[in-house]
Design a protein around this nucleic acid. Structure first.
Length: 813
RNA sequence: GCGACUGUGGCGAAACUGGUAUACGCACGAGACUUAAAAUCUUGCGCCGUCAGGCAUGCGGGUUCGAGUCCCGCCAGUCGCACCA
């Protein structure tokens, strides 16, 4: 009597066994290579979505695979628990963000356990707990002392109706999401982290990240955006001082016909004081949000300020324009405009009838004027006094030297990367450990007073942050002078918590310091798994924090993540799953109906990890069908008992089938190493197809051998099913500790091989030859093949290409 | 707008370094078992053509004996753009 496959009961029983033995608990062990496998921790939004299931399944496959390969594996889990959605939910449901968050964590933890991940839960972290965030406050005070955190004004989205700062996602088509009011830009004081001080190192160390996808490294390089150029000073025509611009094209300096500044530039502000039209235009530029995509796609507009600056070499008076395409946040917030050699300047100059001057000609002859577009390539200089006749790169170098001699500029390296603004005017975040004292100014909270605890029993009314209205929180005394003082009421960007959690997992119970020696054992993370959407910000900030922690002496390595796997999105009907589109699939009912193993297998099988995954209910059925077949064959083998025969089958048919099993295993091992898990799942399906044939032929030992391979191959993907069958077949120990299978090379040997036969690259037949056949033998056999002879009729063979083991191609004309 | 990526049957996809395109599944067709259905099993399945054969990897070129794979130019879609996480 066969038992049917009942995943719910089976999985619960297996999980209870794991909870008793706790095999995922990791401890430092110098005798084995360590493998720290980390998946990006979730925001506790309420319940798991398919993206989480996919992310953690991929991580779990890697963790379990490496355990079977003999590594000392750590796979932790935690909660990125601060953030905006908790505040929104609190306003909507009249609950406190903390209570909502803890409830979600409890529910989602239960879901993760149901999925059977090999997680060391003793290391669980929630970033909203004071025992976690106190250490980030501690680090912040160190960084303030080192000058790596500083205060300046920054631009935010301001909702004039709700009187509140909006996140970019809360700005929809230039309007506040609740009030519908037109959003304005507003300057407020904020704290910044000096990530630009590490720009060069963040850029250069990308080269040592061999285990990262090239595309992610390329995105980070572009984001950092190092460019070599020059700073050029244009003296004000009236009054003292000069306007600084940065350019990578100093060679085009003689072609500058005007300069343009951002609306927020001091020069624009000054000029607007006695020019109402200009003031109105600047106000217009300040409308709209701060998102770069919005700014970059808006129509280019500008206005003459009426002021002039002086060209540092020619002495010409150049008009100063305000232009909305100039970004205050990049360089000096001002550009020299060279319409003939910069497309944006060309478009702007064309629109406003500003002059153009060609100063660079292409090597192959002069440009046809008037220009129809800017000539932006390097070339030979003209109309540039002493510089005429020089090539662009040479001219750039010389220009830097000449400007320096005139004190009108200097060569300079500029980054696109800006310092990281970490202040948020929100409640549900880590308090910034600073006290403002009328007498002493800005004072960091002393170490013994940390953590600055965020009160959790609050009422969210949707208007402003509770701690900004709570004297019990913000009223304090100055640590320096003991006089009355107020606490900073802004909280930190939640990217701060996620920038160092990977290190804290090594020693989550440490209450005397941020990290201890265990961090140097486990770090760097050997494999990091997460969504491609984090390719730039999170991963750059985490790399930055690693270097900060290194430089305060907490850890020794330079980079946090040795290998990175960026998993694709989960789609339904070709679109990202989202509540608004109504195309979500809840993992919970799926697991209840088919079990975690089916969900895991479907996710692994359906797409390679880095690509998007198209959800398919019938695909889930297919996965379930496959696991049922594995179960059924397992029951039959268990009933048959151990075979007395051996695997050295004399019959050719059995030898061929056994070869198929080992060939699939060999391919699967290759695919496992290159993290192409979908074809590992395919290979396991092929092996099952073959094993069913072998079982039908009564080949007991070969089938049993193949089945033990199949169970181990599937163990990382479907751990419950394989654990149960492994025990039932008495294969020894738990399958999670079984040795990873390796193909038997002897089984892969073959005497005869099939070659493809081509004439002029077209397939004309196939040829069976001895595996040992020489090129000459193969060519001779190919020339006598009837279909080949037919296609060679009237032609002379000019060349024969033999690709060993693959094909023979006769080239004839 | 800028940066990065993706595009192969009706669908998800495979083809590792250029070497027999469509493995493995899904859906669908036919059959078996069944009173029936579900489940399960067997079998067929890129397109055109009666065959011979021809045409097919988003579109247009190129390199090569040979291109899904390499190069150039387009088109479409996806992700990121600094306060969503």
């Amino acid at each position: 009597m066969e038992h049917s496959y009942q995943p719910r009961l089976l999985e619960q029983a297996i999980q209870q066994g794991w909870e008793r033995q706790n095999p995922w608990r990791a401890t430092e062990d110098s005798t084995r290579p360590k493998y720290y496998c980390l998946s990006m921790f979730p925001y506790p939004s309420g319940k798991l979505h398919m993206g989480h299931v996919r992310n953690y399944t991929i991580g779990d496959v890697l963790a379990r695979f490496h355990r079977m390969k003999g590594f000392n594996v750590l796979q932790p889990m935690g909660w990125d628990a601060f953030g905006l959605p908790a505040e929104n939910a609190a306003v909507k449901n009249s609950t406190a963000p903390a209570a909502w968050t803890y409830e979600n964590i409890d529910y989602m933890r239960g879901q993760l356990r149901t999925l059977g991940f090999a997680i060391d839960w003793s290391r669980e972290i929630a970033t909203c707990r004071p025992d976690y965030y106190r250490w980030e406050q501690w680090l912040m005070t160190r960084l303030l002392d080192k000058g790596l955190v500083y205060r300046k004004t920054g631009t935010v989205n301001w909702d004039p109706v709700d009187q509140t700062v909006l996140a970019n996602e809360q700005v929809i088509d230039g309007r506040g999401w609740r009030s519908g009011a037109l959003v304005e830009k507003r300057e407020i004081p904020m704290y910044y982290m000096r990530i630009t001080a590490y720009a060069d190192e963040l850029l250069e160390d990308l080269d040592q990240l061999d285990g990262w996808p090239e595309q992610v490294k390329a995105m980070q390089r572009n984001w950092i955006g190092r460019s070599e150029g020059a700073e050029i000073h244009f003296a004000y025509a009236e009054g003292e001082g000069s306007l600084k611009v940065f350019t990578t094209r100093a060679d085009t300096l003689y072609g500058a016909t005007y300069v343009a500044v951002a609306a927020e530039h001091p020069l624009a502000t000054a000029a607007a004081q006695h020019n109402p039209a200009l003031a109105a235009f600047i106000e217009e530029c300040k409308r709209g949000g701060v998102a770069e995509a919005e700014i970059a796609t808006q129509q280019k507009k500008g206005m003459d300020t009426g002021s002039f600056v002086v060209h540092p070499l020619t002495g010409a008076r150049l008009p100063v324009w305000v232009a909305n395409y100039v970004l205050m946040s990049y360089g000096e917030g001002a550009v020299m405009a060279v319409p003939a050699h910069d497309q944006r300047d060309f478009d702007f100059a064309t629109q406003y009838g500003l002059p153009m001057q060609v100063v660079v000609q292409p090597a192959d002859g002069p440009l046809a004027e008037p220009l129809t577009e800017a000539f932006t390539a390097d070339g030979v200089l003209v109309n540039s006094e002493d510089f005429s006749g020089r090539h662009s790169p040479e001219a750039r170098t010389k220009m830097g030297a000449v400007l320096m001699a005139l004190s009108s500029g200097a060569p300079r390296i500029q980054y696109r990367l800006r310092d990281w603004g970490i202040s948020r005017q929100r409640y549900w975040g880590c308090p910034i450990p600073i006290i403002h004292c009328a007498a002493c100014g800005e004072v960091t909270v002393p170490e013994e007073d940390l953590p600055v605890v965020l009160p959790e029993q609050v009422v969210m009314d949707g208007v402003g942050s509770p701690i900004k209205k709570d004297p019990a929180f913000y009223t304090t005394t100055c640590p320096k002078c003991a006089g009355p003082a107020t606490r900073e009421t802004d909280t930190m960007d939640t990217f701060v918590e996620s920038s160092w959690y990977y290190a804290r997992y090594a020693c989550p119970d440490q209450d005397q310091s941020m990290l201890d020696g265990r961090a140097n054992y486990w770090l760097p993370v050997d494999q990091y798994v997460g969504g491609i959407e984090h390719a730039i910000l999170h991963l750059l900030y985490a790399r930055f924090f690693n270097k900060l922690m290194r430089d305060v002496g907490l850890i020794t390595h330079d980079e946090p993540f040795s290998r990175l796997l960026t998993q694709g999105m989960v789609l339904k009907d070709g679109a990202k799953m989202s509540k608004s589109k109504g195309n979500t699939v809840d993992p919970q009912p799926l697991i209840e109906e088919f079990g975690a193993d089916t969900a895991r297998f479907f996710i692994i099988f359906t797409s390679p990890p880095e690509q998007s995954l198209e959800w398919s209910d019938s695909g889930v059925q297919g996965a379930f069908r496959f696991l049922k077949r594995v179960w059924t064959l397992g029951q039959q083998l268990a009933a048959a008992g151990t075979s007395t025969s051996n695997c050295d089958a004399p019959e050719e048919q059995l030898r061929d089938l056994r070869r198929e099993v080992h060939a699939s295993l060999k391919q699967a091992n290759y695919d496992m190493e290159r993290q192409q898990f979908n074809t590992v799942a395919s290979a396991s399906m092929k092996i099952l197809n073959t094993l069913e044939k072998l079982h039908g032929l009564g080949a007991g030992a070969i089938t049993r051998e193949g089945f033990s391979i199949l169970l181990r191959l599937l163990a990382p993907i479907t751990p419950h099913l394989t654990e149960a069958l492994w025990a039932q077949l008495e294969l020894g120990g738990p399958v999670y500790d079984a040795a990873w299978p390796v193909a038997d090379e002897a089984a892969l040997q073959r005497d005869q091989i099939e070659l493809a036969l081509q004439v002029n690259g077209k397939l004309r037949g196939s040829l069976a030859v001895a595996a040992s056949a020489s090129k000459e033998d193969i060519e001779a056999a190919a020339r006598t093949h009837p279909n080949v002879l037919k296609h060679l009729e009237g032609l002379v063979v000019r060349k024969v290409v033999v690709v060993p083991g693959r094909l023979v191609n006769l080239v004839a004309n």
